[in-house]
Design a binder for these strands. Structure first.
Lengths: 351, 351
DNA sequence: GGTGTTTTGAGGTGCGCAACTCATTTTGAC
DNA sequence: GTCAAAATGAGTTGCGCACCTCAAAACACC
């Protein structure tokens, strides 16, 4: 009746016997230590394969003694999204402690490539793993590669540096996120035609640029009735975003959709609210933004915002830790588990 | 610069010294063994608290020796969603093996309360943890409580039995899922008025009933222009769903939305397709269903289906295992991590 | 054959805890 | 103060592995 997954109560001793070698040799093979003939390596590996042997992770962890140190290199300054990541790491304290893992936050100006690179270089040798919110820049890329060469496991968080030799990227596909935003606005305006506004932090940021790219892609191919206006660069600041958007709303009477690519949401909402007061009766425009924060949550509940594209920060924080741990232990990564999904959050499925 | 989470390189020995007792007494307190004065218990617990001591999970795991056995009690018969859960458990094989966990599938007719209850009773004593797709019925409730009394950790999967003493529920809030479906259809029809059809497996199933409840809630309060037709009970079968829906579509020319609550998607799609062929030019109706399967994925890509409400089966499978393990170890559960979110999946954020 | 080098075996130690035994001390009842 | 029961101390063993040492064996080269 019961189909059983996972047997394996074998130990290294069994593997040694199977392969006709001693424990010491199995140990050498398992840890890539030198001084084993290629042919012997093969025999040992075959024995492991044949029995689908997995070293007991608890025993391995206990035996190695020293704790593991991970560093999270994150933007300094107030950023709700990053603060959430930090908060979720805090919630894991007991979990981390029970595994003798230490996680240290390293705040940095991640927007300055040389500062970021220097911060990364400074970590070399001292950490088993590093998670970094990275800018895609040659200097940063080199610093990441140096860390990898020094033996650290490196994951990029939220923003990737694909050209580096980082072991993993924990974050969403931003082009797909932009496409999703586009499809949502296109569908939710419900056949009306008109103009669509975009407010972004800066088109120089890789994630913002990618989102805008995906957004435009969908708009162009599927919603020809909607006309996308030039991107407003609000630098993720509330005041600036508000002013720019208010101006734009004044100039165009037929704006039916708004995509807020980054932060500055407070300012965007204010500009929208002012318009609603001045021009009551007009059809509400469709407003789609990113991330579920206290503010966007309120806006969704109030009906000001129609949908938020969200990358679960808790999931990102935990995934980063789990991936670093799996890499450090040499375990396989559960790709499906660690993949960050693009969540569409509307009022009724607010988490 | 670096704010560190998690110190604790303490051991039980340190705690014993702190509390002024011996290792044996600490062990007794830690495992609720008898023969310790209340006052001593308090002193030991205080020492643990004071140092925020966490036993080293690897050492504990290693020392206890025997492996843990978990059982997954799931519906027998072909059910894509359940097959996916099983497949994801298979992908965890290495992970499970490294932790010396065994997971056994116990297929059962979960729709027959007495059969299900008997299956559960049969597990008593043999398993450390049980995950069960449960029917909410007094007999099942009693069986779950018996399992709990026998010392097993029990989680309900997908479908809950809130009145039982199960330790945890791994699944979504189905009322919220129904609300989300309602809000989506309401928004996506874009101001048109007309009728909305519902196809469900059976209103006797708790999850289906809850979804319909949430759906009607939203429709009634927010989309007065839409008229919800009586629920079609397709029993999750393709043929029956197709026939019922085809009839309904024939009777009503002004159906603008369709909510498919359960399975039988193939039949639903067929009925829709037939209508599209016969009556070209008519506005496409908005079709929202549940779960991302090979079929719904195709329908989404083809534009036949507009959105799928999804509860990530991989996440559910892994969460169930992690929760059972944490419960068995006496570790705290990362609630935020184990919570199953209601995903809205449209073509552009297909996972 | 002798030499040096590489490969392998054998074994030990300790990680932190669970689980147990047995002796000793403390406590409470009378 | 006596005695039994309860509480505690002291200690052992072993889980499976990482990491280390030292000696023995196999091998390569001349």
């Amino acid at each position: 009746m019961a189909e059983t997954l996972t047997p394996s109560a074998l130990t290294l001793k069994d593997i040694a016997r199977e392969a006709g070698v001693s424990l010491a040799t199995v140990d050498r093979v398992l840890h890539n230590r030198p001084g084993v003939r290629p042919d012997t390596v093969r025999r040992v590996k075959e024995a492991i394969e044949r029995n689908s042997f997995q070293p007991h992770v608890a025993a391995a962890e206990l035996a190695r003694g020293r704790a593991r140190r991970f560093a999270f290199v994150m933007p300094s300054g107030p950023n709700p999204f990053m603060q959430q990541i930090e908060a979720y790491l805090g919630e894991m304290a007991a979990w981390l402690s029970a595994r003798r893992l230490s996680v240290e936050m390293v705040p940095t100006d991640v927007f300055d490539p040389s500062v970021l690179a220097a911060s990364l270089e400074a970590l070399s040798g001292a950490y088993d793993g590093v998670a970094v919110v990275a800018l895609d820049h040659p200097g940063v890329r080199a610093a990441i590669n140096d860390l990898v060469d020094a033996g650290a496991k490196v994951v990029t968080l939220v923003s990737d540096v694909p050209s580096s030799r980082r072991h993993h990227y924990v974050g969403i596909d931003n082009i797909a996120a932009g496409r999703t935003a586009g499809a949502l606005i296109g569908r939710l305006v419900g056949g009306r035609s008109g103009k669509v506004a975009i407010v972004a932090g800066s088109q120089g940021l890789r994630d913002h640029a990618e989102r805008i790219f995906g957004f435009n892609q969908v708009m162009a191919s599927e919603f020809p009735g909607l006309d996308v206006l030039p991107v407003l660069e609000g630098r993720d600041e509330d005041d600036r975003s508000e002013q720019l958007l208010a101006q734009l709303l004044g100039r165009h009477a037929d704006i039916v959709g708004l995509y807020n690519v980054g932060a500055g949401t407070q300012g965007v909402a204010k500009a929208l609210n002012d318009r609603a007061l001045n021009e009551a009766g007009r059809d509400k425009l469709v407003f789609v933004g990113h991330d579920v924060t206290a503010l966007t949550r309120r806006l969704l509940l109030q009906g000001v915002m129609d949908a938020a594209i969200s990358q679960n920060p808790g999931h990102e924080a935990r995934a980063a830790v789990r991936v670093l741990l799996a890499l450090a232990r040499g375990e396989p990564i559960l790709r499906e588990q660690e993949k960050i999904r693009i969540d569409i959050v509307m009022r009724d499925n607010l988490p």
